[in-house]
Design a protein around this nucleic acid. Sequence first.
RNA 1: GGCGAGGUAGCCAAGUGGUAAGGCCGGGCUCUGCAAAAGCUCUAUCGCGGGUUCGAUUCCCGCCCUCGCCUCCA
Length: 479
Amino acid sequence: MRLFDTMTRELRELSPLDGETFRFYCCGPTVYGPAHIGNFRTFVLQDVFRRTLELSGLKAYHVRNLTDVDDKTIRDSQAAGKKLTEFTSFWRDRFHEDCEALNNLAPHLEPSAVEHIPHQIKMIEELVEKGHAYSSEDGSVYYKVSSFDHYGRLSRLDQRELRDGASGAVTDDEYEKDNVADFALWKGRRDEDGDNFWESPWGQGRPGWHLECSAMCREYLGDTFDLHSGGVDLVFPHHENEIAQSEACTGCKMAEHWFHLTHLLVDGGKMSKSAGNFYTLTQLCEAGFSPAELRYVLISAHYRQPLNFVAKDKDGNENFPALAGAKQALQRLAKFEQSLVEQAGAAGARGFEAALEVENLGSFADSLEALREDLNTPDALGRVFTAIKELKAADLTPKQATVELAGFRVVMEALGVELPKEETGCANVPAQITEMAQARWEAKQSRDWGEADRLRDEIAATGWEVKDTKEGFEICPKS
RNA sequence: GGCGAGGUAGCCAAGUGGUAAGGCCGGGCUCUGCAAAAGCUCUAUCGCGGGUUCGAUUCCCGCCCUCGCCUCCA
């Protein structure tokens, strides 16, 4: 499989350094609140990446950390009057629930930052010893950027003119740095941190953000590993700083490949709480959409392209046209799968494990190929629908249908798309409504159209909708 | 100011040096009492101006516009 590499700015073939297992690290969430759909664009596409890798026959080892100690987790746990770990484990669990709902495969390993503070301290000691870090009077330790020749390579910093404080995010605990570009490895204890401090050779304090990833990568993936991934915003400074820390420490190239995912936009602009366009999975589910529908939207654009999540229609109503479209598209995919099942004469296997076994993808080979070429999810999706159109026109033998069905399912597994189950009406229909629907059915059978339509209107007035099917009728909440 | 991405049908979104995938919506048709569902089908010359070329949406130059990032935000 080929993938764009941020460092070299070119598509590169992926092959495991150790010849066996492709080992990669994804920067995980900071667990201090609900993850938003922008976070999930990244995590979902990383998941599609991992699935594609495995379905291509490569063995994968996926590590994704949890940032469960930093200034925000400390601040918000204090505000909530909770112990740090109690606070972060709550949000960690919510994150896991969302990931599962979105059908993301769990990473093989999910190390937590707060459980690796000794590893971080050890690394800082090494950096101080090698002259790449210095401590300040307040008990903080900073990385000396000027000591690392390659600093800025990933983000092409040498070509930039950094505008001091352009992001408006410089915080006051950065006062004691020698140079603005230097960053904290260790931060001295502050009163407002409460119980959240750890002992270190520089006194009590807390770890800096960038270091956790360097320490955990080294611990679980070694000095050099295959690929490192995260959102584009992490290119600078986070990944730049990770490289500086790790490579200054080990003397080895940290990662062979850098995989960055472009942000999601909402209605053409940046998502933010203040703009009122900050969406979580829970909110979208409450609005009547499913996680699978969100996933479909999230993979509908190429990962190096901004994805415009349309939340408001042209009249400004927040009714999520993008998700409504996804609902339709998934419905069609499900119908198609069902028709193939009928033609094949068997239900067949389904699921990621089963997909790994399939070799002949039939008409869907192109789609997997599209994923293998720089993870082109929209192209893959387009090819799926094109194949469907052709297959519908064809007269398949049961054997051919079986092959196509298996191929189709492999691609759905690669994308991690879960198709909606065939709906057989709604479970919570009030008895009174069911009786009316039954009466309408009887009127209809006796060809009393007037009465049948009258009853249907009457039912509609209560918020329910009767639809006829091949065998009879079904009742759903009116949409 | 610097760096980066991008401007393709009503919306979303691929792609290519030889006149542009796919999805949603919408229109038409078929089917069924009607409706719904389903099936079939229709809808663009690719921001603007130059250049290179037999030929550019695709390459180069200029311009306009949008979006993101610029030290702890996926």
